[in-house]
Design a protein around this nucleic acid. Structure first.
Length: 872
RNA sequence: GGAGGCAUGGCUCAGUUGGUUAGAGCACACGGUUCACAUCCGUGAGGUCGUUGGUUCGAGUCCAACUGUCUCCACCA
């Protein structure tokens, strides 16, 4: 057999990945014989590199894909990347500025796009390499990019279909505008942060009266664009002002006082200034009262030519100047410190401006309805289910989706305008001449929101709008795995898009996971500098250790912390597996028959029973998406049962000169190990594949069949016997430790046992595991002359001579403590059984258990008391 | 303002439909040079499961309120 290093070293990971690639193990094909299992990888942005969140996300998908593949599904995990319109454009602009000292306008659209595609080539490739390092088993032959030709065709198809159904429209609406990125943003792209500011109370004089209305505002600079003041008509104190005219200070413009419910009674002064051009709520009020819209802040964030003498000032300077000027006029009533939330751009952080602009929108209500129904009817299920509430909350309160962006990197809007007449055509193909007047047509300058294309991901990647075989076979997909942070951006939009264009929701299960935080529980972020680079972890500990650390013991949907301690303990587990395997493999002799034996000894029956239970538990939990439980189960079984007990129990036979005995032991070890490797493979694919290659004669583990629970290998009686044996061994070790008996010293013991035959068969194990060299059976304690210490179980009593090493006092205390413990159990159990309600209402099995427990405890107590008396 | 999560030994977390003495990893104490592994082996100490009340024969688990904490949504000037 091949030599294995004494310490686990993940250097083989690259080699294993290449082996899988060479074997085309990841590729999935239309196969009517098999049921498909499909996962679409959430496409990473080409802006950067893989972070811990990706590592967790990809690991979970890989586990599911490998598990299903081994279970006989045609498993497709389709990878890809996202052009990430605004995020990438921001980065490219930065790069051009730094390297060439130019703005994007200076180099022009065509040159800019050339640089963008060069960026894509570089970063896309880098991400693919990083994904491979994680061990992802996705089908690279189907890799997609949101701006590939066929995915772009899907975008055009979707746009035109929406438009023709009246679900896309172009209109002037108030939108979120980023003055830094100089583009519109959807509501989802605005992040709010609390800022300390002031509430300014401004006096607006009433025309023809010696009175004024006081309004409160957080944004004095927008007053230049006020076109009304609103009061609540139900407000007894304020209603009298409705219909009056106030003089807008500084601008000397007369504006009306209107009555509108929007103005809340009791808040502020009871009157609110209305700036339809720069506030979404004011915009609505403006529509209701037919107010003019006066834009005073331009798309560059500067005051525009409607702002009079303030033109050209930035927003904050204008604010300062306006307050000063109003103050000079005696029109500032008071200034009150005030904390409020300010919208910022999710990409650049700049304060977002609300302004009125002509943009493209998707009408959401008709799309949201069936999307809500799909989840309500469980056609699509969220795991954990509580995330459904978040989804419903958003879907039910949804507003129209602003999809146009004033950017260059992305899918250009397929709308064409005539230079000569006002004709507009929306078309999948380029339109050069106007169908109406024959004039020259020019395409809309804007691109689509990046999420418009990712919303189509589950089917655009399979060939849509073409009716491909892949699409028919693999759609709808099985599961979507992603973080809760993009439920709105992406998951919700995929659901309504899938229903709209494919007629059914894009996936049946949405597995939501949490965030990976740092060791102190903080979100990993660039500004804090607390991010942990998964690539560095892979270099130092291996991808398997990283994967296990991100999954083991993590409950679905909850955040997890990543720490050095965690990754080390996982690496140690992998090292344990490595060494256990190494031990088994180095004991294989040239001509050993490694096939599964047909007859089993007690220890074999015990481990096979345990193994079958583990197979069942792991399979059930993986099917329930309880990856953390499944991983923990395997960790425990591998280390605490297989390594700690079964391997140790096998050693005598393994080293035996008797060929048959040795061969039996080694074959059993190999068979159990192989099952363990298969079960662990989805979690830690590299090391399991590497170990398997040492003895599998060229077979590849990742395409082997998943282990199945088989009751042929379940032996409950032997299982119970060996669990009892383990208890005895632990108890003996305990006594030896407490009595300070040198552990390596072999001692012979006496035993008074109910089942002498079983104890007799257990002697070799007691020898190996507890240092008991031999056991003499006696009928009563009187036969023993030496001083002994006792291990008492209900089936047997072991009396271990301790010679001069015994500390009598300590032994008495130990027995007393054990008596107290046993008495407590008896008391509690007796109380329970005396409760007639319990006995009559609890399941019979439970009551029997309690009775059995009581009998055993009483039996044990008698022996302990006996033993104590012997010291008296 | 609305919604949701979390609260379990020193730390980080498991705990499936309510049912033996509530588990693990790390840290800690003690003991180990047995030919797989010190990235190890053995043993141990450490928890009134946030508080109060309720449902139940039985509650860490279900219900209610409260306290603390985190997150999401909305954004009222």
């Amino acid at each position: 057999m091949e030599e294995m290093d004494k310490v686990y070293n993940p250097a083989f990971e690259k080699r294993i990945y290449e082996k899988w690639m060479r074997g085309k193990c990841f590729e999935a094909h239309v196969n009517p014989e098999k049921e498909p299992f499909t996962i679409m990888m959430p496409p990473p942005n080409i802006t950067g590199q893989l972070h811990m969140g990706h590592a967790m996300d990809e690991t979970m998908q890989d586990i599911l894909t490998r598990f299903k593949r081994m279970n006989g599904y045609e498993a497709l995990w389709l990878p890809g990347t996202d052009h990430a319109s605004i995020a990438t454009e921001v980065k490219i602009i930065e790069k051009i500025k730094k390297e060439e000292g130019l703005t994007k306008e200076e180099i022009g659209r065509d040159e800019f796009l050339k640089r963008a595609w060069a960026w894509k080539e570089q970063y896309d490739g880098r991400i693919v390499e990083q994904l491979k390092g994680l061990g992802v088993s996705c089908d690279w032959s189907k890799k997609a990019f949101t701006m590939d030709d066929n995915l772009s065709a899907a975008v055009k198809e979707a746009f035109v279909r929406y438009y023709n159904k009246g679900l896309i429209y172009r209109g002037s609406r108030i939108i979120n505008w980023c003055p830094e990125c100089k583009t519109a943003l959807s509501d989802a792209e605005v992040e709010y942060e609390e800022q300390q500011s002031n509430l300014w109370y401004l006096r607006y004089p009433i025309v023809g009266e010696n009175d004024a209305i006081v309004v409160a505002t957080t944004r004095p600079e927008t007053m230049l664009g006020d076109t009304a003041v609103a009061v609540n008509p139900k407000d007894e104190k304020m209603a009298k002002y409705i219909g009056k005219i106030v003089m807008l200070p500084l601008m000397n413009r007369e504006i009306p006082v209107v009555g509108d419910d929007y103005c809340e009674i009791g808040f502020g002064t009871g009157a609110v200034k209305i700036t339809p051009a720069h506030d979404p709520n004011d915009f609505e009020v403006g529509l209701r009262h037919n107010l003019p819209i006066i834009q005073v802040i331009g798309e560059d964030g500067l005051m525009n030519d409607n702002a009079g003498t303030y033109q050209g000032l930035d927003r904050l300077t204008a604010r300062k100047r306006i307050v000063e000027d109003l103050n000079a006029l005696g029109l500032v009533e008071k200034i009150q410190p005030y904390a409020h939330n300010v919208g910022t751009c999710y990409r650049c952080g700049e304060t977002v401006e609300s302004l009125v602009s002509k943009q493209w929108f998707v009408k959401m209500k008709p799309l949201a309805e069936p999307a809500i129904k799909a989840v309500k009817s469980k056609k699509t299920e969220f795991i954990p289910s509580r995330f459904e509430k978040i989804y419903f909350n958003w879907m039910e309160n949804i507003k129209d989706w602003c999809i146009s962006r004033q950017l260059w990197w992305g899918h250009r809007i397929p709308a064409y305008y005539c230079d000569d007449c006002d004709e507009m055509v929306v078309s999948k193909t380029d339109v050069l001449t106007c169908p109406k007047c024959g004039g020259k047509m020019r395409q809309d300058e804007d691109v689509l929101d990046t999420w418009f294309s990712s919303a189509l991901w589950p089917f655009s990647t399979l060939g849509y709008p073409k009716k491909t075989k892949n699409l028919a076979y693999f759609y709808p997909t099985s599961a979507l795995v992603t973080g809760y942070d993009i439920i709105f951006f992406w998951v919700a939009r995929m659901i309504f898009s899938g229903i709209e264009f494919m007629g059914e929701p894009p996936f049946s299960d949405v597995l939501i996971h949490g965030l990976v935080r740092d060791a102190q529980g903080r979100k990993m972020s660039k500004s804090l500098g607390n991010g942990i680079d998964p690539l560095e972890i892979i270099d130092n500990y291996g991808a398997d250790a990283l994967r296990f650390a991100l999954i083991n013991g993590v409950a679905p949907g909850s955040d997890t912390r990543f720490s050095k301690e965690k990754i080390e303990s996982c690496r140690n587990f992998i090292n344990k597996l490595w060494n256990a395997s190494r031990f088994v493999i180095m004991n294989i002799k040239e001509d050993d028959d490694l096939s599964m034996p047909s007859r089993f000894n007690g220890a074999d029956k015990w481990i096979l029973t345990k193994l079958n239970d583990v197979i069942k538990e792991v399979t059930v939990n993986l099917n329930k998406y309880e990856l953390g439980v499944a991983a923990a189960t395997l960790y425990d079984f591998t280390w605490s049962e297989f390594c700690d007990w079964y391997i140790e129990m096998s050693k005598n036979a393994l080293y035996s000169d008797n060929k048959k005995e040795h061969e039996h032991a080694v074959a059993m070890l190999v068979c159990v190990l192989t099952e363990i490797l298969k079960l662990l493979h989805p979690f830690i694919p590299f090391i399991t594949e590497e170990i398997y290659s040492k003895y599998s004669n060229g077979r590849i583990l990742m395409v082997e069949d998943w282990p199945v629970f088989n009751k042929k290998y379940v032996f409950r009686k032997e299982e119970a016997n060996f669990e009892g044996l383990k208890d005895i061994v632990v108890a003996i070790r305990n006594v030896r430790n407490e009595m300070n008996v040198v552990p390596s010293k072999r001692v012979s013991a006496y035993s008074i046992a109910k089942d002498e035959k079983f104890i007799e068969s257990a002697v070799p194990y007691l020898n190996k595991l507890a240092g008991i060299s031999d056991v003499k059976f006696v009928k009563s304690k009187e036969e023993i002359k030496e001083k002994t210490t006792a291990v008492v179980t209900h089936d047997a009593e072991f009396l271990i001579p301790l010679g001069e090493l015994i500390d009598e006092q300590k032994e008495i205390e130990r027995i007393k403590a054990e008596i107290a413990e046993t008495e407590a159990i008896i008391k509690k159990t007796e109380g329970l059984l005396a409760n007639t309600a319990f006995v009559s209402k609890a399941p019979q099995k439970l009551v029997d258990n309690e009775r059995d427990k009581l009998a055993k405890a009483q039996d044990k107590l008698a022996k302990l008391k006996d033993k104590l008396n012997a010291f008296a």
